[in-house]
Design a protein around this nucleic acid. Structure first.
Length: 425
RNA sequence: AGAGGGUUGGCGGAGUGGUCGAACGCGGCGGUCUUGAAAACCGUUGUACCGCGAGGUACCGGGGGUUCGAAUCCCUCACCCUCUGCCA
């Protein structure tokens, strides 16, 4: 969530920034929060004063009892009753104000960075760069959903029977290909200085709240019945939450972790004609890179992460383009996001395989992730993450782009991981 | 899953109703001594909120309660340990 100091000290910028997301009533929303904050401070002052008085009274009674002055003590006890009820009332009011303020802040998304273009939808995303040669396949080129059947490497029908839509089986070379891509991505991340972690696939409510999946967005996640737990929609959640409630020594920055996990997403309401095959799944494999950065270094880190992702796609020889997401397409918690889309020659479509974001202090504020600063001034760090990479759509691109009469050619860099060069019938 | 015992500052560990934000030890930081280091000695060392400041308030796993007063008593939830059960 946004920091109160940001809202107070950079009010105009905050309003302008949120306008880029299409939030037109930001000014009144932020005014309410500042107003609420003032009420909260006043209430706290009142309460502190009453509590100070009550504490003094209690000490007094204590010493009276000790010196045996029972009657004085008894009469003093009577005096405390008004203080007590007043304190209780103020406490309740303060608590309510705090909750109200938190609630209000939870519903305000991050302020887009200056470099984020304005715009209401994906149409306004800014093309940053494009790499690779669009394959010219002899017509008709097949989409991957036909090819995977032809070579029997990914089985949606089986998934439908065993689980439901969006939960395919990967079989034989298909399964090996997934494993190969994952291992390739992990090795590359490790070489780039990321420490591998294998996080839990289920998280609690506090974790979901800290990274911004909760509240309100629980519809995206699968919830565990009767236990306040959720299947992770991305490894970002557990890996970033490793650092919840921590104070980091500046010498340990930046912190770089990579994790491979299955990701589970309900994707409620998003099932239509153009989300066929591997384009959108309820369960998919993803390697995620996560950085904790000093605020001064975080945009440099964002660039570095983008370059890492670009390097992966180049090695895999998949044509891609990079988009600078506009305000309207930006995730709730992100200050800036670059999407990587790969070209799929069978569908003749671009598919997102990576999303690299800087959250600045938005998550850190919820996480209470601070850095030890000079003379006791601790400050919030910046969190970043990116897919490196999401497997199914990458497979879609590899399968479609590398199809030929002879089979599907595996990118050379993956061959040591798969153990075969071609997928054939 | 059942029974019992626990959860205290960066770590270890005292503390069972008042002067306890918390003994003591370790670690960290600063200093004395030393050519330098070690040892020894002295000092210092949690987080957040309110306040211009002096200062005040809250926090001893989370939440609630009893009491003039709670780290300490009660309820509840979470987690940890031991034994039994089960399982890979």
């Amino acid at each position: 969530m946004l920091e109160l100091s940001t809202i107070r000290d950079h009010f105009e910028q905050a309003v302008e920034g949120l306008a880029k997301r299409g939030i037109t009533d930001a000014e009144s929303l932020l005014h309410d929060i500042v107003d609420l904050d003032q009420q909260r401070r006043d209430k706290q002052s009142d309460l502190d004063q009453v509590l100070a008085e009550a504490n003094a009274k209690a000490r007094e009674i204590g010493s009276l009892i000790k010196s045996g002055e029972k009657e004085l003590a008894e009469s003093a006890k009577v005096e405390t009753s008004t203080l007590k009820s007043r304190a209780k009332q103020l406490q309740q009011e303060l608590h309510d104000l705090q909750e109200k303020q938190k609630e209000a802040l939870y519903h305000i998304p991050n302020i887009p960075n200056d470099g984020v273009p304005a715009g209401s939808s994906a149409d306004h995303n800014q093309l940053v760069s494009e790499w690779g040669i669009i394959p010219q396949l002899p017509k008709p080129a097949s989409p991957h959903w036909d090819l995977i059947k032809q070579y029997d490497i990914i089985d949606f029908d089986l998934g439908n029977k065993v689980t439901g839509a969006g939960f395919p089986f990967y079989k034989g070379s298909g399964a090996k290909l997934v494993r190969g891509v994952v291992n390739f991505c992990l090795d590359q991340a490790e070489a780039a200085g990321y420490q591998e972690v294998q996080p839990p696939l289920i998280v609690n409510e506090a974790s979901g709240t800290a990274t911004g999946q909760l509240p309100d967005k629980e519809g995206q996640m699968y919830a565990i019945v009767d236990s306040d737990h959720y299947l992770i929609p991305t490894a970002e959640v557990p890996i970033t939450n490793m650092y919840r409630d921590t104070i980091i020594d500046p010498g340990n920055l930046p912190i770089k972790n990579v994790g491979y996990t299955q990701c589970f997403r309900r994707e409620a309401g998003s099932w239509g004609a153009d989300v066929r095959g591997l384009n959108r799944l309820h369960q998919f494999d993803k390697v995620e890179i996560v950085q904790i950065s000093h605020p001064d270094q975080s945009y440099q880190a964002l660039d570095e992460m983008c370059q890492h992702v670009a390097g992966l796609l180049q090695q895999l020889e998949v044509p891609y383009r990079i988009l600078n997401l506009c305000g309207g397409d930006l995730g709730f918690t992100s200050a800036q996001t670059y999407d990587f889309e790969v070209y799929t020659a069978g569908q003749e479509k671009w598919l997102e395989v990576s999303s690299v974001s800087n959250f600045e202090t938005y998550q850190a504020n919820r996480l209470k992730l601070r850095c030890r600063g000079e003379n006791k001034k601790n400050f919030l760090l910046h969190t970043l993450n990116g897919s490196a990479l999401a497997v199914p759509r990458l497979l879609a691109a590899i399968i479609e782009n590398n199809q030929s009469q002879d089979g599907i050619k595996i990118p050379p860099v993956l061959v040591p991981y798969t153990g075969f060069e071609m997928i054939t019938t």
